[in-house]
């Protein structure tokens, strides 16, 4: 179980990186960031890239910055960077809470936020976060910079809108209103396993009623997305069991659940119902 041979390129700047990527992409060149998803696939030889553009030695890609409205996360920011809050905004607490559900500690030391998005595993917690919060994904290539809204970014199981010569340079997450409540829940077989279903919710309270609800579901469909029916079931309702159950039911009905040899679509809908309700309960702490 050793990777097939490849040539490793080690650019020192982002410009250099996209230049190399433009050259090697047609020859099955790929970007190597944290490698925590890519390297296992290479070990199984399910991927045999001929070139890897290793972006770990580019200065400044581990930058996390806030301009007051947006949090920017650089291409080499590791999951572990979120173990402590990165911004004095409910978004910081949200990211910290979500981060501790990602795989395991040593994986979080290497794996990157942006790499997770580029890999686009259906069960990825960061993909769910990006979809729920309508992140902007910034693609860089020799052709320039291209911001992609999250809802246009995910295209299928491990498939995205990134062109082969584009490098995912940054993700921008909108900061949340200070009164935003969030909740997260996921279901996996063992600690640290891929989530079979996960839900992230945010909303504000206006006059004791839920407003601006966002309900994101991951792990159930080929890629995570917001579930409008569940959001509609929440908006205007007081937070509590009744509204939460209605939203969970709406989400379960709305998803086109994936099936595999061991997991029926029916079961995955059961999980969606459970994780959405539990995420909502978590938000109401």
């Amino acid at each position: 179980m050793k990777p097939a041979p490849f040539i490793r390129h080690v650019p020192k700047t982002l410009d250099e990186a996209v230049k190399i990527l433009a050259q090697v992409a047609p020859q099955d060149g790929r970007v190597l960031a944290g490698g925590q998803s890519l390297v296992p696939i290479m070990a199984f030889r399910l991927a045999k890239p001929a070139h890897l553009v290793d972006i770990n030695e580019i200065d400044g890609l581990d930058r996390i910055a806030s301009d007051g409205t947006t949090l920017s996360i650089g291409a080499c920011v590791r999951h572990g960077a979120f173990h402590k809050s990165v911004v004095g905004n409910p978004l910081g607490a949200l990211l910290t809470f979500v981060a501790r559900h990602i795989a395991h500690y040593p994986i979080r030391m290497r794996g990157t936020f942006c790499g997770s998005l580029a890999h686009a595993d259906p069960s990825s917690e960061w993909c769910l976060t990006a979809a729920t919060l309508d992140a902007t994904i910034v693609a860089r290539s020799t052709r320039g910079e291209r911001p992609i809204p999250a809802r246009e970014f995910f295209a299928g199981i491990m498939s995205t809108a990134l062109a082969e010569d584009e490098l995912l340079a940054e993700v921008r997450l909108p900061l949340l209103s200070p009164d935003t409540k969030f909740g997260f829940n996921e279901f996996s077989r063992r600690a640290g396993d891929f989530a079979m279903s996960a839900a992230l919710v945010t909303y504000r309270l206006q006059g004791g009623k839920i407003a601006e609800a966002r309900v994101g579901v991951g792990g159930a469909e080929p890629f995570p997305r917001r579930i409008a029916q569940a959001e509609a079931a929440l908006n205007g309702q007081p937070p509590g069991d009744k509204a939460f159950r209605a939203a969970a039911e709406a989400a379960a009905n709305a998803v086109e659940a994936m099936e595999d040899h061991q997991t029926s679509a029916e079961y995955r809908r059961d999980l969606v119902r459970a994780v959405v309700r539990r995420a909502l309960e978590h938000s109401n702490r």
Binding site: R189, R190, A191, G192, D193, F194
Partner: peptide, 11 residues
């Protein structure tokens, strides 16, 4: 893989 065949962890 050990992600699909699942020996228990400390949890």
């Amino acid at each position: 893989t050990l992600a699909e065949y699942m020996p228990p962890t400390a949890r």
